[in-house]
Every structure is written in C-alpha cells, then in structure tokens.
C-alpha cells in the first residue's frame, strides 16, 4: 500500500540528480552554522484533538507548560472520547477530574508505560508540553509498539531544548541558549536544528573545535 501514493518521474529524478546530491553519507553538518528554516528533521506541531478512529485514549499533560484555561479547553475538546480517556498530569494538579497526577517526568513515564503495556492497535496517545517532555512520552509510546500515527504531540510552553552531545553522547537538559556547555564533557556546543525523534534531542557540536576559544556571543534563543 505504501508504494502507491504518487508518481515517480524518472526524468525528473535525473534532473534532480543533476542539481543536487543525495548526501546520505556526506553532510558537512559541522560547517553549516545557520540551519535552513525548514529543516526536515525539525518537527512541526498542531493543536491536540482526539483521533476518533481509536478506541482507547491516553492524554499526557505537562502541567507547567499550559496557559491558564488551557486545561479546561483540552478537556472540552476530548469530550467525544471521554469514556475511553485516561489522563496523566505531570508536575502539579490541574482542574481535570479523574486525572492521574504524577510529581515529575520520571514518575509520569512509569505511569505511561504501565498504562500502555498490553496496548492494542486501537490505542491513541496525546502529549502536550515542552519538547523534551512530549518527545519523552513519544519514545515511551514507540517502545510500547505504537505507530507514529497513533501518537499526537503538541508543543506548549517553553522553547527549551534537550541537547545531545556528538562528542560524549550525554544529553544536556533545559537548554535555552544558542551555545551551551555540555554537562557530560564540558565542551561548548552549538545547538543545531537537526533533531532526533528517538533521542528527543537536538544535536550539539563543539563550536570552537577548529579554532579553540573562537566562540560567538551566547544568546538566549529558546526562551
């Protein structure tokens, strides 16, 4: 089924090979300090609504990321599936009756995993919060066997990023600046737009590797 969506035009393809390169193994990521605006690995989001084709629904909310009134708006938009809806709230209480409240991300992930063990093809998962939060929920859902199409994510609140260091492979949390010191190896990393869904993280590459100490101004760009 997956092969029948559109038309391969082999002449066009040849033209395409004529004008660019499919550089799977050959991307000078390290040199392109300004990422293109529409980087394809960069996720895009829309507001949450229930997928009524599903039969079991799990809504996971990062409480601090919501605007005033957003919780009740969410509750309203999920009315149509209310009978099959479970809600997990991370952080603090929200005006959502029946919600399972967990103190932090780690506890929330345990609750999500427990809820998704034995999930079926009819399961749907929704997550709203900061990018590190929603992608952690995404990873838990994927690990439980869900397909991307069974998961809906909405980014809300801070633009802070999780950054994965290409040198020591540690992740640095809550990054709001264009350049950040890695919590693993201490190198100053340029935060690139290249995003890994599996890690829920953006790539960080040492900014001054070629000329040590040559570091541009540090600015808060992900408030």
């Amino acid at each position: 089924m997956s092969l029948r969506k559109s038309i391969p035009d082999f002449r066009l393809l040849e033209n395409s090979m004529n004008t660019t390169t499919c550089d799977a193994g050959h991307r000078s990521e390290l040199n392109d300090r300004t990422a293109p605006p529409s980087m394809r690995s960069r996720p895009t989001y829309s507001s949450l609504s229930p997928d009524t084709a599903g039969a079991e629904h799990l809504l996971v909310i990062e409480a601090d990321a919501l605007q005033p009134g957003q919780a009740s708006a969410l509750s309203k938009s999920f009315t149509s599936v209310a009978e099959a809806l479970r809600t997990v709230v991370s952080g603090s209480e929200l005006p959502l009756p029946g919600a399972n409240v967990q103190p932090d991300l780690a506890a929330t992930l345990l609750a999500v995993k427990a809820r998704l063990s034995g999930a079926t093809m009819q399961q749907r998962v929704y997550a709203i919060g900061s990018e590190p939060f929603i992608w952690s929920i995404h990873t838990a859902a994927i690990d439980a066997g869900l397909d991307e199409k069974q998961i809906r994510l909405c980014h809300s609140g801070s633009l802070k990023r999780r950054v994965w260091c290409t040198h020591c492979h540690e992740t640095t949390e809550n990054v709001t600046t264009n350049i950040v010191a890695c919590t693993g190896c201490g190198r100053r990393l340029l935060v690139r737009d290249h995003f890994s869904r599996r890690l829920g993280a953006f790539m960080g590459v040492q900014i001054d590797a070629e000329v040590p100490g040559d570091v541009p101004a540090i600015e808060e760009v992900f408030p």
Binding site: M1, G54, M121, D147
Partner: peptide
Amino acid sequence: ETGGWPDNHVHC
C-alpha cells in the same frame, strides 16, 4: 480503517 488501524500497518 473502521477499526482504527493506521494505514501503514495494512498491506495488500
């Protein structure tokens, strides 16, 4: 489709 299966899990 009615049963909520994502279409990329169905092959014919």
